[in-house]
């Protein structure tokens, strides 16, 4: 199966008065049609910036995509998103790649009806007339589970609850049945019960429309529920990439291992009530420095001298499973087969 999106060595930097932020330092991954790829990492790891860089949505005065390729499959060829002008990218945004953002309150225009906010995407990319877009939007509203769709078309964002607003955002994202939907922490700002509904909705739409979903989150619980594959990011790089089961059962990168250990489990503590919750020591890397070493080195239990000298590349450790680490945790010794 060929991927519909191939990202290679993406580099993004932000130039500010306080210095240069090396936000993305050589990110490489694939996205396959109809799959759900979870992108996991802490704040600052570069999950959102990676995705936004692909379609030029990062603020461009301070930000700059400085290297790499993002090949989007198109008909009988590829389109390198990073080489397109802003005008050309506009066709990709919304039409080929849809976005769901985190905070539905601030992400919707308060002075425009939700119906119009959905329909304007359709008129732009699908060439529909106002009337056609309106009826398609109403159908879509019903599809995403908004009751009374015809009346609600003319309602404003502040008339809806958080969960409903997120459904509107989802409708906006899928309005033109894009190939890829990028969901940037869509459930983080919602109540737990509503979270589950939103996750189900996205899954249902995905089955219906066959799109690939890149689900950005820092919540490993959500990942377990919906992902086919997982990308773990740290310090602006991909540190591990695997199928979801493989990641949970057989993690290879020290960071992933630390993350999974940090999830408190009721069945582990036994009767020892004094056992502490595990956490990863140390603080995230300073992105003002160019990355010439493994970003996780200062916090790693298995660190050795090579880690401080070179940025580890992604090494294939199994089928559909790579990790960016010089240490072989399974064998308990540094790898000697990488140049």
């Amino acid at each position: 199966m060929k991927p519909i999106l191939q990202v290679r060595d993406l580099i993004t930097r932000f130039y500010s008065v306080d210095g240069v932020v090396h936000a993305i330092n050589g990110v490489t991954f694939d996205l396959y049609a109809s799959e759900t790829l979870a992108v996991v990492g802490e704040s600052g790891s570069g999950k959102s910036v990676t995705m936004m860089s692909l379609v030029g949505l990062i603020p461009m005065p301070p930000g700059k995509v400085e290297g790499g390729q993002a090949l989007l499959e198109k008909g009988d060829g590829h389109l390198d998103l990073l080489s397109l002008s802003d005008d050309q990218l506009r066709h990709v945004r919304g039409g080929q790649i849809g976005f769901i953002f985190q905070d539905p309150i601030s992400s919707l225009n308060p002075t425009m009806t939700i119906g119009q906010q959905i329909a304007e995407s359709m008129t732009e990319h699908l060439g529909l007339s106002q009337a056609e877009a309106r009826s398609s939007t109403i159908k879509l509203l019903r599809n995403v589970g908004i009751p009374d769709a015809e009346k609600r078309y003319n309602a404003y964002p502040h008339h809806f609850s958080g969960g409903m607003r997120q459904r509107v955002m989802i409708a906006i994202a899928v309005a033109c049945e894009p190939k890829i939907v990028i969901a940037d922490e869509p459930t983080t700002a919602l109540d737990v019960t509503v979270q589950a509904q939103i996750v189900d909705l996205v899954k249902r739409l995905q089955d219906q429309m066959g799109m690939a979903v890149a689900w950005i989150t820092h919540d490993l619980g959500v990942v377990a529920g919906i992902a086919d594959r997982v990308l773990v990011m740290y310090g602006g790089t991909v540190v591990e990439s695997a199928r979801v089961d493989d990641l949970y059962e057989d993690p290879h990168h020290p960071y992933t291992i630390g993350l999974l250990k940090a999830i408190p489990r009721l069945d582990e503590s036994g009767n020892d009530e004094t056992e502490k919750l595990t956490s990863i020591e140390g603080t995230p890397p300073d992105l003002y420095q160019e990355l010439t070493l493994c970003p996780f080195a200062p916090r790693c239990d298995y660190v050795f001298d090579r880690c401080w000298q070179q940025l580890p590349p992604l090494i294939q450790v199994d089928d559909q499973h790579s990790a960016a680490c010089f240490y072989d945790v399974k064998r308990g010794e540094p790898r000697d087969d990488i140049e």
Binding site: R93, F99, F101, S106, S107, L108, M112, E120
Partner: peptide
Amino acid sequence: EDYIRTARSKGISTLRIGAKH
């Protein structure tokens, strides 16, 4: 504002973003 980011993510024209959003 965030909603301008949303508007841009929809790929609508700059003119429309300026006028309506």
